[in-house]
Design a protein around this nucleic acid. Sequence first.
RNA 1: GCUACCGUGGCUCAGAUGGUAGAGCAGCUGAUUCGUAAUCAGCAGGUCAGGGGUUCAAGUCCCCUCGGUAGCUCCA
Length: 658
Amino acid sequence: MLVRFEDGSSKEFESKMSIFDIIREQSDELTKTAAVAKVNGELKDLRTEVDSDCTIEILGTDTNDGLKTLRHTASHVLAMAVKELYPDAKMTIGPAIEEGFYYDFDMESLSAENLNQIESLAKKMIKKGSRLRKYDLQRADAIKLMEEKGEPYKVELIKDLDENAVISFYEMDNGFVDLCAGPHLMSLRQIKGFKLISSSSAYWRGDSKNKSLTRIYGTAFDNKEDLEKHLAMLEDRKNRDHNKLGRELELFTTVDIIGQGLPLLLPRGTAVVQTMQRWIEDEEERRGYMRTKTPLMAKSDLYKLSDHWYHYKEGMFVIGDDSDEENIDKEVMALRPMTCPFQYFVYKNSQKSYRDLPCRYGETSTLFRNEDSGEMHGLTRVRQFTISEGHLVVRPDQLSEEFRSCVDLAKYCLTTLGLENDVTYRMSKWDPDNADKYLGTPELWDKVEDNMRTMLDDIGIEYTEAVGEAAFYGPKLDIQAKNVYGKEDTMITIQLDMFLAERYDMYFIDKDGEKKRPYIIHRTSIGCYERTLAWLIEKYAGAFPTWLCPEQVRVLPISEKYTDYANEVKNRLVAAGIKATADNRSEKIGYKIRQARLMKLPYMIIVGEKEQEDKLIAVRSRFKGDEGQRELDTFIKEINKEIADKTIRAVEVEDIEK
RNA sequence: GCUACCGUGGCUCAGAUGGUAGAGCAGCUGAUUCGUAAUCAGCAGGUCAGGGGUUCAAGUCCCCUCGGUAGCUCCA
């Protein structure tokens, strides 16, 4: 057989051979770094035997697939160590994930100390080294083996496989065996950095009805330096975490007695949000939106009309008891979890002609959602939030153009905030296997999803498709972003809805004089302000672009002698519309600068004898450090341009201290 | 909602095995009047999240509630 290699070379082999042996024929060195291989483009374990002409791409531990293989093998080492220390632990699954691996066990939960013990044993095992031997069993034998080993979860996994599936196992030198499809490293010696990160819990098969398992997260690398770098990066993330930074920078706080998921925006946080809100409201109005202001609550009947009541009552704050038979006539209200029906009634206030469409309604809308207690987090998952909500009522022939304009607006917002490269687009589809969760028929869903796909392809954005992520009334384009810990959230969503117009009996009179159903686009432009603020804090580590800063300039007199001049400068800045303050405390200049830097201010103006005499100012920025003296008017002109243009100024000097 | 961990002055944290709370920063007062990331001194500040229990004695042990963190599950 003829084996072709990635580099273009090829070699003839007599008989069938494992990929590993083929690699060894090539070079002994290569066996030290090779982790896995692609045979004719398909990922294969190095133990795989080839017996016909093929192309082989050898993937080292420095490649994505190679590192993934290494980490998968590391998860087996973890399992081996756990089984040695906790023989009663039952193994379940242990895959490689983005930044490492995890393994789920049915066992007691673990303390940090337990984790350390497991880690040291695992490291010892790696140091000792072991080859991994792979062997296949028929289904029945596989079940028998795992029953003998007392691994009920493995038995369950095997039973899910096809009757005549061949099931592979990997065995270590010490006899530790794990059911696994592979691929795996040939031996443990390639694992050079191993670290357990945390333990937590996870449900068996990801279903909250199932048993809660103990999950151990870890990571592994093919060299120590990368591990160190990774751990340093994990540490650095904490410094960007909005939940920590946002409190330090006095942007928001929470108060036990006020309640979970109910953050208080402090003056600084409010200033940032207000700046965004004014910008977005103006921008939307420029784009033909009409602003509404609708009630924060309504009778339950309103939500019944849309089916929200039946689909999401658990997620609503209901006022009054609708199960109280005695007072069946008593009004039951609910705080609104969305704005849709309110704006529908704005539309329905007058009869609409085809000429009136599209109707674009926008509202800075406060919503209430009764999230489960374990779900709340900082500003990203809260029970009350304010969103740049909007609904477009459109004729079918306008759908495509209006959808595009919504995407356009969202992209404009992202670009202006400097976030456009940090998002991914996801088309969220319904789940035909859970049809009762959705309104409408499969035919309609197929139609509207095809429609969305066409529009997305037309616009030319790259997107993934996700089953079961749709709203109950239609598919969504979700714009996703990851937080500092890599957890993904929806920042912006644009949804197609072909059901609710009928529910609320919305129509327009078409050219032919007939009543027609409009389509509705549910959308947000900048998302909800709390979540977007959180995202911005993490993106900029609290050092917002100047136009968003709650305090743009702080005037720092060298000593109290120059307080009057400092105030004069500050007053002129404020009069010019700049968010400026003066720090007139009798502190040394270095101290004042330090504090202003810690609060991540973009500009400091330092005034002393020289400036007062020459009627100048000395500028220090977080972008360039000491920028020297200039006229105040020049500075005002420059900063006002920076604010008006929403410039994102690049930082040219590094912080001396974090 | 589940599992685990955590909750000590505004903030960050120290307070083995139960013996009656301590530091730094911030704050206040005074001194200092200073040229680009921390001037000095003094003062004040805590029913140790809340409630219940065990004990001669609880910040420390147990239970409940509230709140926080991580992961899971959920997210119109």
